[in-house]
Design a protein around this nucleic acid. Structure first.
Length: 530
RNA sequence: GCGGGUGUAGCUUAGUGGUAAAGCCCCAGCCUUCCAAGCUGAUUACGAGGGUUCGAUUCCCUCUACCCGCUCCA
């Protein structure tokens, strides 16, 4: 069933998400707003199930991790310490000829001769341009190649067969104002600030500038000492958090994949520095000998297993190890967990070994100690950290893409039709079970179905439906990924049959049904969805 | 940010310089003893603003959103 997910399919998925209430465009009635999305009734359940399961696996079922829910707006110094104020605002330049965009600070300085032109005149048609333009000619190239570039530029601007005007030359060294690929002049550098800016208090001035957090992680570092103390944990220990983050993406793309407002699930797992590990490891506890490499590998494995646990197949997941240029300057290692989206292999989660960079920075900027006293080693140090950081919205999209399936089925009479099924893992399916009376105009069927709905409701998301033919109701649930359907029929009510107080339990993927005593329903379902 | 494409009902599509049609979905009712049956009825749309015009969903301009490519991407 591993059919290829095409772009065509992506469109169907987007359409289904809207039609059934998973995802809507934000502010749609006003024409929408680029990079923002809303989750409808089913989408919000899906997201909640994802977050709940992550939270359960990260904190409740572990003894070494605790939670945090920090504010979105923090003291602006936070972002100076983390480096976001600097690195999240890159000056960018565009090539006037090719329109290609560069980061101004990454352009190699060049030396050579600048050819300035004051304009150009068309040899045909008679129109002209008085816009100045310049081309850099590096040593060893013919002057005509500079003129050729200039003619191209003016041709682009509507001057046919242009004759160049006002040529002058200038020697220059180490300039970054020209495109290294073609010599064309670049635009003035423009700031691209990727953090959302706002003002704390009603007065809008520089003093009051604050930012919507671009990641949840920094609050964990900032609260490290507080949380460590109240949690009464010893290293290694982790602090995790789920919350909104904001990035002014230059170009949001691929549906909800790259949004300007998104939700993260982040863990900062604090560990001993490798030097300390050597001193304090003991034979009874193998993990005590783990340095950052072992912990990093451990978290990659943990997270990979977790994705399989909620239904993403191994063959559609891939690990990508960042190296060299990709790797942030502070990171010792980063592994991305990628998923095969219909639009390509894309990152779901990054697991970074960040050394003690962040805590060191916050110690430096706040003047407050971030040190930890290790009782085994009898020494103080700033803990190191491994950070698994996942995107909730990306994961929700991955799960939707993964679940989407169209299958051709043939009925008893040999008629074929298409069945659309969302094969969500029961654990994350928005609705766990649907309850139907076989017919709605038989009060005793309806009453029994309502009774079952009431019984299950406190334990899971149940949907009751009595409209139309039973087959239609099954298909409706298939399309939103409800894994189970319960139908009350006449055999449920028959006093003289063994089937009294049994119902049919239909399984979404196989469409197979079995008769189950009503009293067995709850344990049977709970076992599947937990 | 650049280039190209697109925007008519919840979805998929017709169509026209004189305010719009259909299928599916949805809702109500009837019917229906297990996989989108049938019948009756109902709601719902020309992305926004401006211009040309007696009159614009249609032509023009601007904006916006979505898709593709480039770019960007902690």
């Amino acid at each position: 069933m591993a059919e290829t997910k095409t772009k065509d399919e992506m469109e169907k998925i987007v359409s289904l998400c809207k039609r059934r209430g998973f995802i809507f465009q934000s502010s749609e009635i006003y024409g929408g707003i680029n990079g923002f999305w809303d989750y409808g009734p089913l989408g919000v359940e899906l997201k909640r199930n994802i977050k709940d399961y992550w939270w359960r696996c990260m904190t409740r079922e572990r003894e070494d991790i605790v939670g945090l829910d920090a504010s979105i707006i923090m003291h602006p110094r936070t972002w100076e310490a983390s480096g976001h104020t600097d690195t999240f605002s890159d000056p960018m330049v565009d090539c006037l000829l090719s329109k290609k965009r560069f980061r101004a600070d990454l352009i190699e300085p060049q030396s050579g001769t600048i050819y300035h032109f004051t304009g150009a005149e068309a040899t045909e048609g008679g129109n002209q341009s008085s816009e100045p333009y310049s081309v850099l000619l590096v040593a060893g190239k013919q002057p005509d190649s500079a003129r050729k570039i200039a003619r191209k530029y003016y041709t682009q601007r509507g001057i046919s067969k242009p004759e160049l005007r006002g040529e002058t030359t200038e020697e220059i060294e180490n300039t970054t104002r020209f495109n290294p690929e073609n010599g064309s002049l670049l635009t003035e550098p423009r700031e691209f600030n990727l953090m959302f800016k706002t003002y704390v208090g009603p007065v809008e001035d520089e003093e009051n500038t604050a930012y919507l957090r671009p990641e949840t992680a920094q609050a964990i570092f900032a609260q490290f000492k507080n949380v460590l103390e109240v949690s009464r944990k010893k290293l290694p220990m982790g602090i995790c958090q789920i919350g909104k983050a904001f990035r002014n993406e230059i170009n949001p793309r691929n549906y909800t994949f790259r949004s300007r407002e998104f939700e993260q699930m982040e863990l900062e797992f604090f560990i001993k520095p490798d030097e300390t590990v050597e001193k304090t490891s003991n034979e009874n506890n193998p993990k005590s000998a783990w340095g950052w490499k072992e912990w990093h590998r451990y978290w990659v494995e943990e997270r990979l297993n977790w994705y399989e646990d909620i239904g993403l197949p191994k063959e559609d997941l891939e690990l990508y190890e960042q190296t060299g240029d990709d790797l942030a300057h502070y990171a010792q290692a980063t592994v991305d967990i990628m998923y095969r989206f219909p639009f390509g292999m894309q990152e779901l989660e990054g697991i970074a070994a960040r050394g003690n960079y962040d805590l060191t920075q916050h110690q430096k900027f706040s003047g407050k100690s971030m040190e930890y006293f290790d009782e085994d080693a009898r020494e103080k140090y700033i803990p190191h950290v491994v950070e698994p950081s996942a995107g909730v919205d990306r994961l929700a999209l991955a799960l939707i893409c993964n679940a989407y399936c169209e299958e051709t089925i043939t009925d008893d009479k040999g008629k074929t039709e298409t069945r659309t099924v969302m094969r969500f893992h029961p654990r994350i399916a928005p609705i766990k079970v649907a309850v139907f009376p076989l017919l709605k105009n038989k009060p005793e069927l309806v009453a029994k179905a309502r009774e079952i709905q009431k019984m299950l409701k406190p334990h899971m998301n149940v949907f009751y439906d009595q409209t139309g033919a039973i087959g239609r109701r099954y298909r409706r649930q298939d399309e939103i990924g409800t894994p189970f359907g319960i139908t009350v029929d006449f055999e449920t009510l028959a006093d003289d049959l063994e089937t009294k107080d049994t119902v049919t339990l239909r399984e979404r993927d196989s469409m197979k049904q079995q008769r189950v005593p009503i009293k067995d329903l709850l344990p049977k379902l709970l076992e599947k969805i937990l």
